[in-house]
Amino acid sequence: MKKKYIGFTLAIVTLLLIGCMIIAGCGKEKAADTTPTTRLIVDMADREVTLPVEINRIAAVGPVPVINTFIFTMGEGDKIVNGLPGFAKSERWKYQTVFAPHLANMPTIQESRTEPNIEELVKLEPDVVFTMDEQMAASIDNANMNAVFLSWTEPEDVKQTIALVGKVLNKETLASEYIKYFDETVAGIGKAVSAIPQEKRPRVLYANMQSMTAPHEISDWWIETAGGQSVAKADRGGQQLAFSMEHLLKWDPEVIVVSTPEDLKLINEDPRFQKISAVANKRVYPTPMGAHVWAHRTAEQPLAIMWAAKTFYPETFKDLNLEQEIIDYYKKFYSKTLNEEQVKEILSGEPKI
């Protein structure tokens, strides 16, 4: 009788242990099922976008080189799955593929600065698509992809854009470091030029001399942040201001920053421009060209401000080691170490293949 009781007890204990193991196993399976695979973010059009927790494939459509600068700044350029548009495959845009070499072999899904081929975009299976066009964002959503809208209307919107891109790409700490760097750069340059009276600040024009335009309203901001007076600001009614020779003579800029090296040659050789103070005093400079044109909207804006300040006031900023700042910037944010020759090439505004 005692043996039967012991056997019965062992059987009960065994069944209980098996039950516990089954329950424990079910519990583990249940925990795995509740692990989040998606997250919700709000983009710059106040759209709610559901994204995967991990982002491994990124696409940029529209003004691709501009958007790429934000992705590069978060050190995630190697995750971009679409190549450069047709217009950005020239040597002028060389540093897009220096910072993300694989882009040279990625498929082109748009030739112009506007609409991509949605069917080709779908084939790339991006986890997220960045765009600066709300209608394009809607089209991407309709194709069952995740569109995140970025907006840049005011100069300092670059910080909000970086913050959002950092959140999307799980690089919020690096985004915060960029914003701190941006603010400290602006404050440092501002403090250095604050003692310079307005009347002693150089009259500056950023121009495309071939089209006789003052493009990109943001140039007014970086010119004035660096301690200059933007001669085009008062007449500007939008992003681009067309001007005549009469305007140019009236403004008589003391410093001219041109958009391309070809402009530099044109303005120095064309006899019409020789009476302009900037030309007569040899103070005409090409804008540097890194991942994007520094004088335009780009995440490289802090570098543009430092370059402009040192260009306007070489003595005031004689201790600013711009070359080292450039090397440090791209190493920290782009995860790319440049050599001295590359830095000189960027500052020349004339990348060569």
Rank of each mutant, 00 (worst) to 15 (best):
27 G>F: 11
65 P>M: 03
120 E>W: 11
65 P>I: 05
91 E>V: 04
100 A>E: 04
50 T>V: 14
80 I>Y: 01
100 A>R: 00
99 F>Y: 08
81 V>H: 00
55 I>A: 02
62 G>L: 03
77 G>E: 01
114 T>P: 08
27 G>W: 12
42 V>A: 08
54 E>C: 08
105 N>K: 12
100 A>L: 06
121 L>H: 04
57 R>P: 09
27 G>N: 11
122 V>W: 04
89 K>P: 10
90 S>A: 13
78 D>M: 06
29 E>M: 15
66 V>G: 08
116 P>W: 01
109 I>D: 01
45 A>G: 09
44 M>R: 08
75 G>H: 07
87 F>M: 05
50 T>E: 13
43 D>F: 05
98 V>K: 09
79 K>F: 06
43 D>G: 10
60 A>R: 03
114 T>H: 13
56 N>E: 15
104 A>I: 12
53 V>W: 05
39 R>P: 07
27 G>E: 11
58 I>F: 08
32 A>W: 14
98 V>P: 05
54 E>H: 14
52 P>Y: 04
38 T>P: 03
107 P>R: 00
82 N>C: 07
62 G>I: 01
37 T>F: 07
124 L>K: 05
110 Q>V: 10
120 E>V: 11
41 I>Y: 07
48 E>A: 09
71 I>G: 03
49 V>D: 00
84 L>F: 12
35 T>Q: 15
28 K>W: 14
